[in-house]
């Protein structure tokens, strides 16, 4: 097989450049394999994150030919043949070195999510939930926290200043998971609008496009959350109905 040409971004906060590596192609490889071979032979100190090599841990996120992807789930033969493979670090987060970025923004945001508050157990000591109750949440809980969606989201990718008041798609998935949980008793809608910037998302679906777990982030998490927020503050009918017929859930906005 012909040689692969890989153009890797190398550098840190003091600047960087593309370095081109030529390495023999091997059958059945994914991009992460190629990067590993470069590391083992040509550039031992190359910085790259990975763990499972099976698309399960979400460590090996990078941008391949300008698209956010998992390196371990991108087969080399899927990429245009004969063209160099361009690999850069996630753009939205500060660089540490080479392909490794500081993703602490996401962990900070995760820290602010008001936790799960279950209702009491049934009389027999169990929680009764049926398949139809858990199915919707299970989609959200597939998230491997690769933060590719956070990376591609233009709200913070192109506007650093929004990071202060915008949680991002991964977090919306987490909020949706909690808000739709049949056992949870917390109401995070106010927090979502006022502190987490749900209104900044303009549903342009790039997050959905890149999600390696194929979570329908926009359709199943963000839009339903937006609709729930409408219930809460833009729809007097729903608001009235809730006042009359149902007790509303507890509102807890204090982030821990």
């Amino acid at each position: 097989m012909a040689d692969l040409v890989v153009r890797l971004w190398r550098g840190d906060e003091n600047g960087g450049e593309f370095i081109e590596f030529k390495i023999p192609a091997q059958e059945g490889e994914v991009v992460l394999d190629v990067v590993h071979r470069i590391q083992a032979t040509l550039a031992p100190d190359l910085a790259v994150r990975w763990n499972c090599k099976a698309g399960k841990c979400g460590s090996c996120s990078a941008e391949i030919n300008g698209r956010p992807r998992l390196m371990c789930m991108t087969r080399v033969n899927q990429l245009p043949e004969g063209e160099p493979i361009v690999i850069t670090p996630l753009k939205t987060f500060p660089i540490i070195r080479d392909l490794v970025t500081d993703v602490s923004f996401n962990f900070e945001m995760l820290k602010k999510v008001p936790g799960f508050k279950p209702k009491p157990r049934e009389a027999d000591g169990t929680y009764r939930m049926y398949t139809e109750d858990v199915e919707r949440g299970q989609e959200f809980r597939k998230c491997i926290e690769c933060f590719l969606c956070q990376d591609v989201c233009h709200v913070i990718r192109d506007h650093e200043e929004n990071k202060e008041h915008y949680a991002g798609p991964r977090l919306f998935v987490r909020y949706a998971d909690l808000e739709m949980n049949p056992l949870d008793t917390n109401d995070r809608r106010q927090l979502l609008v006022e502190k987490m910037g749900l209104g900044y998302c303009n549903i342009t679906k790039c997050c959905t496009e890149v999600c390696p777990e194929h979570i329908h982030i926009t359709d199943n998490a963000i839009i339903p959350l937006k609709e729930r927020v409408v219930d809460d503050r833009y729809d007097p009918i729903a608001w009235l109905g809730k006042k009359i017929f149902r007790k509303s859930k507890k509102v807890e906005t204090d982030a821990k």
Binding site: F18, L90, P94, S104, E108, K163, E164
Partner: peptide, 13 residues
């Protein structure tokens, strides 16, 4: 603090 820190140099061209 819990404040999200902004800035930092981004990688890539």
């Amino acid at each position: 603090g819990t404040k999200v820190s902004l800035g930092g140099v981004r990688g890539g061209p």
